[in-house]
Write a protein that binds this DNA or RNA. Structure first.
Lengths: 191, 191
DNA sequence: CTCATTAATTATCTTTTGTTAATTTTTGCC
DNA sequence: GGCAAAAATTAACAAAAGATAATTAATGAG
């Protein structure tokens, strides 16, 4: 069976067998148990991630409360702000499920691009895509009220509701768990 | 007096006199009157912008209401989502003040990078910086309630309050103009 | 300067969310 | 399977935001 990373890259550009070898060499794959913290507040992110299997959640710890900002699942990349800025991280990254994750670092990325130059264009494209996605998400968050955000999430990422606790979805939607619970009741009563 | 674009670039990398000429050649600078719409919903963005002077606002038109998503001011770049995706724009860009704007396009960027290769690294760095800023802004928006967002904006961009109508700041903060007005009163009474 | 237009504020009422605490349900581990 | 811990729900009340309408203030074009 082929490496999911290779599958992912191949959906964008064609790789020769030797290039596949190089990519596989440069890619470190690790497994993490549910609950593992990949990055802590105050720590320096030395690596970026690509989720092969499982779910990673990013969250801030504010007044002792966790405020979820993102759920990363299969085929999503994580470029921690701390990794890009080389400043201490302001948030946590933790595995919500048992995970398989491909790791890369500044050094390994450099080597990889040197050996397979055509990957650079792909990485730049993905980076620009990431910016677009992030901006669209932000706009959508601002333009919708909590109930619409909830209904939209139900449509776009229904799997999340079977993978992570509702309380984390609540803070992801920008409301409290109590409010989400109440809202869910309100919605089911309506229909 | 030197071009602000050159000043901006020079604050990151050193340009030779001939490189400065090339940059100036490739940069088209235009003036727009307050109220000019640079990009409409449904249109294809053919250009990206760099604000030399003035203020440009991005907003969605939802049920006949304008929902502001960003204010771009001096030394900020605008990469419309539509420019990056080549899809019709979902939002508007309009000048809130008389503006001076540097314009670029895919074609001009390509030529510029070809002639001044060291600009590519700068552009990539700016792109990554843009992603970080956007992510941090999003996180901050989600982690703060409307009042805290307002107080923070007062601190970080006090100039905006003298440049754009409060109703646009209100939707930028994710609330209605009426609610912002009420909140402002609440705050002044408190102190 | 004047007047029409737009923006901002205020008031009233409804809806939703936050907060705290208690209760029920679910989960996971021995 | 039983039990402790975590998660979800429910209840009750306070605080804030949305909606609508009326009033006041500010702006800008002629």
């Amino acid at each position: 069976m082929e490496n999911p990373i290779i599958q992912f890259i191949s959906s964008y550009i064609k790789l020769s067998p030797e290039e596949i070898n190089i990519v596989n060499e440069q890619n470190q794959i690790k497994s993490f148990k549910k609950g593992t913290v990949l990055l802590s507040e105050g720590a320096y992110a030395k690596e970026c991630y690509f989720i092969l299997k499982g779910c990673v959640r990013s969250y801030y710890l504010i007044d002792g409360e966790e405020r979820t900002t993102e759920f990363y699942t299969e085929n999503q990349g994580i470029n921690p702000v701390s990794y890009l800025t080389r400043q201490p991280s302001e948030y946590y990254l933790a595995c919500e499920e048992d995970c398989e994750v491909a790791l890369s670092s500044a050094e390994r990325s450099r080597v990889l691009i040197e050996k397979v130059p055509k990957l650079e264009a792909l990485i730049m494209q993905m980076s620009s895509q990431l910016l677009v996605q992030n901006q669209v998400s932000f706009d959508s968050f601002k333009n919708l009220n909590p109930e619409m955000r909830y209904l939209k999430l139900l449509e776009t990422r229904p799997d999340l509701f079977n993978r992570v606790p509702l309380q984390h979805i609540a803070t992801y939607l920008g409301i409290t768990p109590v409010s989400l619970s109440r809202m869910r009741k309100r919605i089911t009563v309506k229909h």
